[in-house]
């Protein structure tokens, strides 16, 4: 499997490690009144789609960037690759 890195071009999947669902970017506010419930959901509740899935991948044997990879779990086709930093900033985070 090749991952088309937005900065470096296509690189072999062996250079990457996967963390999991891209929803891990949206860490809950620990000061919220219902923080315990939100962290429970954040840590344990995942969608497991048969089809397109957004995942966090780390380019460990490369430029050490975190990526959001949109991948089809049925065909292994890599549909879209973004820098996780850009995704987080677009969602209102400061970095």
């Amino acid at each position: 499997m090749l991952i088309d890195h937005p900065l470096l071009g296509p690189r072999d999947a062996q250079e990457f490690v996967i963390l999991g669902d891209a929803s891990l970017i949206d860490r809950p506010d620990w000061q919220a009144g219902d923080a315990a419930q939100r962290f429970h959901d954040y840590q344990h509740l995942r969608d497991n789609p048969a089809g397109e899935h957004r995942e966090l991948w780390f380019h460990e044997q490369g430029d050490r960037s975190w990526l959001v990879v949109t991948r089809n779990t049925l065909t292994h086709e890599v549909v879209k690759v973004e820098l996780a930093r850009d995704v987080a900033i677009a969602r209102g985070r400061d970095r």
Partner: peptide, 24 residues
């Protein structure tokens, strides 16, 4: 080496971190 080292993909001056034989 898994990298594409062809002139078009990896011209002089290009640099990359990768693995060869499981070594960085």
């Amino acid at each position: 080496c898994m990298l594409d080292l062809d002139d078009a993909a990896f011209p002089e001056g290009r640099v990359a971190r990768t693995v060869m034989e499981h070594l960085a």
